[in-house]
Design a protein around this nucleic acid. Structure first.
Lengths: 176, 176
DNA sequence: ATAAGTATAATGACCGTTCTATATAAAGGA
DNA sequence: TCCTTTATATAGAACGGTCATTATACTTAT
């Protein structure tokens, strides 16, 4: 992948997450990335295409982060390891909510929008990921609920306190 | 309050929640409400002022909804009654996330923005509301985590399944 | 020479906000 | 009852700005 394209993806991810998808203009992205606007359109079909590629890149990073936490677990409990990984992910970023849900929210008025469909797919992949680790449907759904809650609450109170309560919930609600 | 102002607030709330704050233009709001653009500026100082008044109205509705659930409880458990009320609130609206967090997210790049400060205050009011019902800090924080999780997850999977898991968590994590 | 990146300007549309000028209707005094 | 004031609402245009996208033409490297 071109260095310029990578720069664009990185700065677009940061700016979209910080300001939102409608708020940020392509001009601001290319300025931040230090490339020309035509270079952006050379690598991406449209703003929607850029958003989609940003989200796909982020999904890969997030899932590989979760996966590494189960392949190299730090706790004897899988649920606890996953929770630790999710909390670390939150700590690594600005606490500004779930980027995928925010994308869906901003474009959800058109339910056939490609971004909306992609986010739905992504969140179902997350629940499916839990199921593959031998959690049943309800246990997986519950994990998703707790993780989304942790992400959202971190926008308001400090992450350490959120972590405290997420761990408390997991410890009392999961055996493995 | 003027009938026109009420119409504006109602349609603005619906449109902001459906499309987002930056996405929706004032023209579309006045069209939907059936008033002239100058009528909007007669009642509100600016778009930011309109957003703030929409959020304040919504906060009152949400809190009075929670309050009525504890004054006329349907369950023997306070936490369970609150959870039922929160789930009913979700069912009453389009499942498009928490409007307050979405407002904060869209304007958070300017942390001194009045909307951002208001949302922070609102969420702290929620935790304070729980504390007044004799939940300690951690119990209150945990309730907030679970409620935010339920709101977020309802954007993805059907609310009945979310309700199932929220109730499960509450039952196993709270005595009263 | 081929490919990738650059700068710049143009397009048409929409943005929040303000201005002007007109219409309506209720309220108060004669 | 008539006249005047005041408040509220209206339509429509204008302002300067930004938006995503496209076209053109120039400069680099490989």
């Amino acid at each position: 992948m071109s260095k310029k394209k990578q720069d664009l993806l990185e700065h677009a991810e940061e700016l979209f997450y910080k300001h939102g998808f409608h708020s940020i203009g392509l001009k601001q992205i290319v300025n931040e990335a230090g490339v020309a606007i035509m270079t952006l359109y050379n690598h991406f079909d449209s703003k929607e295409d850029l958003i989609l590629q940003v989200l796909k890149r982020r999904e890969e990073k997030y899932f590989s982060y979760l996966e590494s936490s189960v392949s190299k677990p730090k706790c004897n409990s899988i649920a606890l390891s996953l929770a630790q990984a999710h909390l670390n992910w939150i700590r690594m970023h600005e606490t500004n909510g779930c980027m995928f849900l925010r994308a869906k929210e901003e474009f959800s008025s058109d339910s056939n929008n490609e971004i909306v469909r992609y986010v739905n797919k992504h969140k179902n992949s997350l629940i499916f990921f839990f199921k593959q680790l031998n959690f049943d449907y309800w246990e997986s759904t519950r994990l998703a609920l707790l993780f989304e809650g942790a992400t959202a609450l971190s926008e308001i109170i400090n992450v350490d306190d959120v972590a405290h309560e997420l761990m408390y919930c997991i410890k009392h609600l999961y055996k493995k």
